[in-house]
Design a protein around this nucleic acid. Structure first.
Lengths: 282, 282
DNA sequence: CCGCAATGGACGTCCACTCGTCCATTGATC
DNA sequence: GATCAATGGACGAGTGGACGTCCATTGCGG
């Protein structure tokens, strides 16, 4: 797939409903006190698909392309910046260097990165976030199942509000405090075409303050799943102004250690986006 | 682990885009003086390790063993119950049947499962949760880094409270409501040696009510990471009674649609466990 | 100017994993 | 008792990915 770089919209849960015809049951418990246990077919439903979800989403190459692409699209490594060296990056991603190189070549062909040899060389990001096309949003939203959208929105809401609250509860070091302020300032001064990147960095910075790597990783993943949608939303001055107020409220609540306020501010902040996206579902 | 402080010269609008002296964008800096501008070291620190986290944790065999073992230890498929057929399960986990079989054989040798051939045969769980050994908890906790424990506890708190709140906000169907009540009743009647399983099922059932598969999956993962620790905690009557009150409060708040109360009840519920585990860190 | 060090580039080898296919076993059903 | 469908069991061929090693390029340091 030469154009593997397209939006591989993440997980495609193959929803196998369990076939429950007759004796087939996950409940062949001899001492089963019929009915006492809530779900003899314990592993059915959502629970089953979560428990037995795929061990790996695709082949190493695809997943590697996806990962690097996401980092680029999230703006974690922005235009002109350099990715870690192939050896380093391959180690971090836990894939062979060959596989990583294939992925990078693929991204290079697609125009996302560029490699230069020699010491102080490396692989540099050439991608710039394109201006959103009219109609792109509707298409992007409809490309997702409505279930997927709700899933992503719920997931994100839980993680973001939880992160904000947890961050507010921590006692922050001076450098952490000033770091957060700097992110906030950056958010308020960045040109519109880089707004989304700064926004992402701000939110991830909040998650980082919790000190929980798992939380950061999950939040990054949640954002990634909405990223294509968010990219399709035209950045309006009004939205930015509106967001700015909320971002400030979040930051101040976190710095003040007011968990409740941090949660509320975050929730309001996300609600606007969520409402907008849901509007394209009808 | 290397942290990084990129020395990429700020934002370049044009001309000589990237001038990087020893422009390693991903250097090593444990303290990560986030002091600098938010951008250059964008992918450093937690953020970098989250963004470039391993694409795959290990080989397919290991991950498969791990996955199935977790399902068993969580009690999602309890003693005497049957796992999905090899063909089915391999498909769900997205590994070859051979790999799955190897994993199952490995589990069989370890005494977790048992396979029977023929129609209506299958692979059955033979594992029973052992009674906790005195001193096991301290060892288990210390086996984890203190950072790991905090990470897991924070992650779990965020997900569980968020799930409870989100569940309370949904309008639930009759079957969902009665399902939750059944879980609650089960929790209050189950013998002590099955308490943890019922507890897990109850909490996952709450997550299921949110309708967000991602949330269920993450919560399952979060619980898994604490599972060995929880297993090492002796189940005391007093704890069960205490938990029962909180479980009931959670369920009632969710059924009543009271998001705030659901969150609070969940938080209190988890706090007890968290405090206990933290006590073993000194 | 030279040499060094760190980078991307390339290749041969080996093994884990997959895929397809067939066999062996079992118990419900007729 | 015979049949049949679904299950675990096994094997050979094909391949994707990992590993080690080497080469080519580049710019900084001496």
């Amino acid at each position: 797939m030469s154009h593997c770089v397209g939006l591989v919209t993440g997980r495609q849960e193959s929803g196998h409903p369990f076939r429950l015809h007759r004796g087939y049951a996950f409940a062949v418990d001899p001492d089963d006190t019929l009915g006492a246990r809530p779900e003899p077919e314990a592993a059915g439903g959502l629970l089953g698909s979560a428990a037995f979800r795929p061990v790996r989403a695709g082949n190493a190459f695809e997943e590697t392309v996806e990962r690097v692409l996401q980092v680029i699209k999230l703006g974690l490594v922005a235009h002109g910046e350099r990715l870690p060296s192939e050896r380093d990056l391959a180690g971090r991603l836990n894939v062979s260097r060959d596989t990583l190189r294939e992925a990078l070549h693929s991204l290079q062909r697609a125009g996302y990165v560029e490699s230069r040899r020699g010491r102080y060389g490396g692989t540099f990001v050439t991608y710039r976030q394109p201006a959103p096309q009219p109609g792109a949003l509707r298409k992007a939203v409809q490309g997702l199942g409505s279930g997927d959208l709700e899933d992503a929105l719920t997931y994100r809401l839980v993680l973001e509000t939880g992160a904000a609250e947890a961050a507010a509860r921590r006692t922050l070091s001076d450098s952490q405090r000033s770091g957060l302020r700097r992110h906030l300032a950056d958010l308020e001064s960045v040109p519109a075409d880089r707004y989304r990147q700064s926004d992402t960095r701000f939110h991830l910075a909040v998650a980082e303050l919790t000190g929980s790597p798992s939380l950061v990783a999950s939040l990054a993943e949640a954002r990634l799943r909405l990223n294509d949608l968010l990219d399709a939303i035209p950045i309006l001055e009004r939205n930015i102004d509106h967001s700015a107020v909320q971002h400030r409220a979040m930051a101040e609540a976190i710095l003040a250690g007011d968990a409740e306020a941090a949660r509320r501010a975050t929730e309001e902040h996300l609600e606007a986006t969520a409402a907008l996206l849901r509007g394209f579902l009808g």
